[in-house]
């Protein structure tokens, strides 16, 4: 009977069914409470761990909230200038084609200042994996409008809501790169529920597996929250994300095996 089981009986190493991977360091994450970055970091490191790739992996940290990703991911890492992570990753993968290389970038980094590097690395079909965390805002600098900020969405530089007439339209980078011949696997995921995290992890695993086959760019967007920037509680921001971000940034695969599986 369950009531006869003591804590001593259950808290044994052999009974562990889930614990943080050793590929995440013990440093306290610098992210706000409830931020999806931590989960995205962890599932990426779980994949690298489960595939036994730690000794072959080189990661690139961007500029933005995840600038300190190298403090948390226990793999060799380089920190890139703002937006340039795909340039670093390109050179690393070209010079060391048998390594597993990923860039981890936010939407300000990847979709604004690094647009050229992103598109050209994708178009050349570079054999690395991009993890693109999109929370529709510049988090690190205090919640300014990003290229991905939704229409009407408020930020510190669009305090009355994003007006596409004067501020331009939100940019769907993932749909954009899916149309380039150099991308092989392009998908959009989220990490706000256990089911979403499991799916996102599968997608990352697929991307890293495909990278071993050198078939071209693998690109995983993770739509995430920014409760500080959005000025909501973490739980509310996840709800808001489902109701507002997902309709514009729908989850699911966009390109599989080099073929579009969704109209873009």
């Amino acid at each position: 009977m369950s009531d006869t089981i003591t804590k001593e009986q259950i808290f044994k190493p052999e009974n562990i069914v889930y614990k943080k991977t050793d590929l995440m360091t013990d440093n306290v994450l610098s992210y706000c409470p409830g931020c999806g970055h931590g989960t995205a970091h962890r599932i990426l490191m779980e994949v690298i761990d489960e595939m036994g790739l730690q000794s072959k992996t080189i990661g690139i940290a961007p500029v933005g909230c995840s600038v300190l990703a190298y403090e948390f991911m226990n793999v060799d890492m380089q920190q890139a200038a703002h937006g340039r992570a795909p340039a670093l990753a390109t050179a690393i993968k070209r010079l060391l084609p048998d390594k597993t290389v990923f860039s981890y970038q936010g939407d300000g980094d990847l979709a604004a200042i690094g647009t050229a590097e992103t598109i050209h690395a994708c178009n050349r079909g570079e054999n690395f994996t991009v993890i693109f965390v999109n929370n529709g805002i510049y988090g690190m600098t205090g919640g300014q409008m990003a290229p991905t900020t939704l229409e009407g969405m408020k930020s510190s530089t669009s305090p009355y809501g994003r007006d596409p007439q004067s501020m331009g339209h939100p940019l769907k980078m993932t749909e954009l790169v899916a149309q380039l011949p150099g991308t092989y696997y392009v998908t959009r995921q989220a990490v706000h529920t256990p089911a979403a995290v499991r799916k996102a992890k599968k997608a990352i695993r697929k991307a890293i597996e495909l990278q071993q086959q050198k078939v071209g760019m693998t690109f995983v967007e993770v739509v995430s929250n920014c409760n500080s920037g959005w000025k909501m509680t973490p739980v509310d921001s996840n709800k808001w994300m489902v109701e507002n971000m997902f309709p514009f940034y729908p989850l699911g695969d966009i390109k599989v095996d080099g073929k579009l599986v969704k109209e873009v």
Partner: peptide
């Protein structure tokens, strides 16, 4: 789902 990876499950 824990962003900070603070939970170990048995």
């Amino acid at each position: 789902v824990c962003p900070d990876g603070v939970i170990t499950v048995y």
